[in-house]
């Protein structure tokens, strides 16, 4: 319980820090944001009016507090380009990013588990070397390179899936494969390492000596103790997943938060950039906190030593 409260508190501090950073982002825009919005030739009266409307005349700390308290009630301002509420735009796109991230995670686990397990069982063999090479390549292939390769092969040559967009259930396959493969490469390495560690332990040797079959040993003696470190790795990679979604969504024209962020940057729609970056980062903090809490729940030792 103490651990959970400490974890929630530190998450709250981080969320405040993130809000400050995101708030300051807009103040990094070179020159006066008013110039950027209205152009340098705008009349002074218009500039003053806009400055007041945007609250830019108040001290920085006050502006930040307004930003945070408004954001807490779901008010993230109005998109400059479309005139729509930022929160409404985000709400439209969020389900797409969530679906893509989940599908990519499923792809990653579906590839990494068998690959990592086989590599660990046949450590040093041909299969291990192949899996190692595959995961090395997978870690080095960026989404914006893998995506086009998948498009050429599976959309243009074979015609199995659409080139992009989000029409129909098939559209998610290629983006999820793209986003999931990089993660799969990393996970396979980690799963291999975690399993190797457990395989070397005495209780596994004892089980082998008792004449248990390899599958039973894996199920009862290897996977359960390896599950925790693997969960940690999955949690740590959620960030790469969400960050990678930004580029993957752009490659495939998948209408999620990442694509929205890139569009907002290209249109210099500052409130929308703030909103998307804030929402993606805060979701990441929330997910990470959940993984940590889950971890503490699964590993009773943590609850006792937590300082």
């Amino acid at each position: 319980m103490r651990l959970a409260i400490a974890r929630l508190l530190s998450a709250a501090v981080v969320v405040l820090g993130v809000s400050a950073a995101v708030f300051l982002l807009v103040h990094l825009v070179p020159g006066d944001p008013i110039d950027a919005l209205l152009g340098e030739a705008a009349a002074n009266a218009d500039r003053g009016a806009l400055r007041q409307a945007l609250g830019l005349d108040a001290p920085l700390a006050v502006q930040w507090w307004r930003f945070v308290s408004a954001a807490a009630t779901g008010d993230l301002g109005t998109s400059l380009g479309t005139g729509r509420l930022v929160a409404a735009l985000l709400a439209e796109r969020l389900p797409y990013t969530a679906a893509l991230a989940l599908a990519a995670l499923a792809v990653a686990l579906a590839i990494a588990f068998p690959l990592g397990t086989l590599a660990a069982l046949r450590a040093g063999g041909v299969l291990d070397a192949l899996a190692g090479t595959a995961s090395m390549l997978g870690a080095a292939l960026p989404n914006f390179l893998l995506g086009p390769i998948f498009i050429i092969v599976f959309a243009l040559w074979l015609g199995w899936f659409p080139i992009g967009g989000a029409e129909g259930p098939r559209a998610i396959v290629l983006p999820a494969l793209t986003l999931g493969s990089g993660l799969a490469a990393l996970l396979a390495r980690m799963i291999r390492a975690a399993l190797l560690e457990v395989l070397a332990e005495e209780h596994v040797r004892a089980a082998r000596a008792r004449g248990l079959g390899p599958l039973a040993i894996l199920r009862h003696h290897v996977f359960p103790p390896a599950a925790l470190p693997i969960l940690t790795v999955v949690g740590a990679q959620l960030g790469a997943l969400l960050g990678g979604a930004v580029i993957t969504e752009t490659v495939f024209g998948w209408p999620g938060l990442g694509q929205l962020a890139v569009e907002a940057i290209q249109r210099r729609d500052y409130p929308l950039v703030q909103g998307t970056v804030l929402v993606i980062s805060v979701s990441y903090v929330v997910l990470n906190t959940l993984v940590d809490l889950l971890y503490a729940r699964l590993d009773p030792r943590l609850e006792n030593d937590a300082g």
């Binding site: 501090v13 993130v18 807009v26 959620l238 997943l241 930004v246 950039v273 980062s281």
Partner: peptide, 24 residues
């Protein structure tokens, strides 16, 4: 440590995307 946590809270290259988007 809290400062580092704040920077780590931006997933992957999102911070770099946001920053370079704002800086131009």
């Amino acid at each position: 440590m809290r400062v580092m946590d704040t920077f780590l809270a931006f997933p992957g290259i999102l911070l770099a995307i946001g920053l370079s988007g704002m800086l131009g």
